[in-house]
Structures are given as C-alpha cells and as structure tokens.
C-alpha cells in the first residue's frame, strides 16, 4: 500500500540527525516493555509470529500514531491495532486502562472473544526452498512493476516503473504481500536489483547506484 511507511525519496523531513556516541538501546524506561510487548502482541493476536502482518499493521497507522510516538511507540500502536482487529482486546481497552492507571474512573470495555486467523507457517522464519529455477538471471535488465496495491507490499513506490539490473539472486522467501494477510506463503526468489540514481531521480540527481530486494512477482523483463 502507499502509506506513510513508504518513505523512500519523500521530501520535507529536514536534516538528518548525526549519530550520538553510546546512545542507549532504550532512551526511556517504557520503551523496554513497549518493544517486548509489541513482539509478544504479534503472537497474541495471530497465534504465531507473522512479521509481515505486523509490518502491515505499522503501515496502516495514521501519522500521529506512526510518527509522534517514535519508533517504540509506533511498535506499540501497531501491536494494539492487531490485538484490536483480532478482538483480543476491545477497542478503547488500552486507553481506558491507561486512564484508570492515572487515577481516572472510566468504565473499561468487556473482555472479548478473540478471532484469530488460521496461521500455519510451513517452517520457522521466512526462508524457503523452491524446486523451480529463478525467472531472472544475474545481469538481466528488469523493470519493477508500476503497480499500486491496496494491501501489504514490499515494493517501494520510488522504484515502481524503473529499470535496473539483477545483481544477486537471493534465496527464496515467503511473499509478504500474501503472508501479511494470511493468504499463503507463496515463496519466491528475491533479487537484489541495482538501479542507477538518474533512472530513479532524473538527470540532475547525485551520481550513485542503489540496490533494492525485489520479490520475483515485483519484476518484469524489459524488452
């Protein structure tokens, strides 16, 4: 989907922040539990670890829930979205409890009956082996499909319709586009495709090259 998470090449963010030495992993105390709870929420909501479903929850957050709470807040908010969609928690349950924690007296919604997806990964992780041969070869010129899909995808907007060259054929992986929606693993080869900066950003762009990992169905051969 074309959501807030697809940031590559977008403008208006201001300067980058130079690295700080000895930055702690968790700058604030709550971030420790927010991180762990987000990971645990993936399993609690779905009955298993499906990071594609989690990333799809992340990309559906509105701007405030994605940006304003920072990285760990964003993970927490995505966890809440998944838990609510699977009726593990009722809408508003977290806010009501949080208000009561700070001394308010608000009614909390009743406990709901979870409706979890049927999730049966064929193996741990995302690597899979395929009997078939890769459709594209190293050195082959390919084009990223110029498509916009309503659901989850890992095809960034800024490479769609652009041509590049296959640099590395990576092992086959579970396809996020279907796995995120619990519609099957559909493992595919992944290709590191190298693009020239001028193909992506025009003739005035800085000179550099860029590789992006593309699942096989994201690519078409160029004539």
């Amino acid at each position: 989907m074309d959501g807030i998470a697809d940031m590559g090449g977008t403008q208006g963010w201001g300067p980058v922040h130079p690295p700080k030495r000895d930055e702690p992993v968790f700058a604030e105390d709550w971030q420790r539990k927010a991180f762990a709870l987000a990971i645990l929420s993936i399993r609690a909501a779905n009955g298993g670890i499906n990071t594609d479903a989690f990333r799809h929850a992340l990309e559906r957050l509105d701007r405030a829930h994605y940006i304003d709470d920072g990285y760990f807040g964003r993970l927490l908010n995505a966890g809440e979205l998944m838990l609510t969609e699977r009726a593990v928690l009722a809408p508003g349950a977290i806010e009501a409890r949080a208000r009561n924690l700070r001394g308010e007296h608000v009614p909390e919604p009743p406990v709901t009956e979870p409706v979890r997806p049927h999730y049966a990964p064929t193996a741990e992780g995302s690597l899979r082996s395929l009997e078939t041969a890769p459709a594209f070869g190293v050195g082959q010129r390919v084009r990223a499909r110029a498509v916009s899909v309503p659901g989850h995808t890992r095809l960034p907007g800024y490479v769609r319709g652009r041509a590049g060259v296959v640099e590395i054929i990576q092992p086959a992986h579970v396809l996020p586009d279907t796995n995120a929606h619990f519609l099957g693993e559909n493992p595919q080869y992944v290709y590191s495709v190298r693009f020239d900066s001028h193909e992506l950003w025009g003739s005035d762009a800085e000179s550099f090259t860029l590789t992006v990992e593309m699942y096989e169905s994201y690519l078409e051969s160029t004539a």
């Binding site: 690597l127 095809l155 590191s192 800085e206 550099f208």
Partner: peptide, 11 residues
C-alpha cells in the same frame, strides 16, 4: 562510488 542498499526484504 556510492552504493545504497535499501533492505526491503528479509535479506
């Protein structure tokens, strides 16, 4: 030469 790697997959 600058080469940027956008890790969009599980690689």
């Amino acid at each position: 030469q600058v080469v940027v790697h956008d890790s969009t997959s599980e690689v």
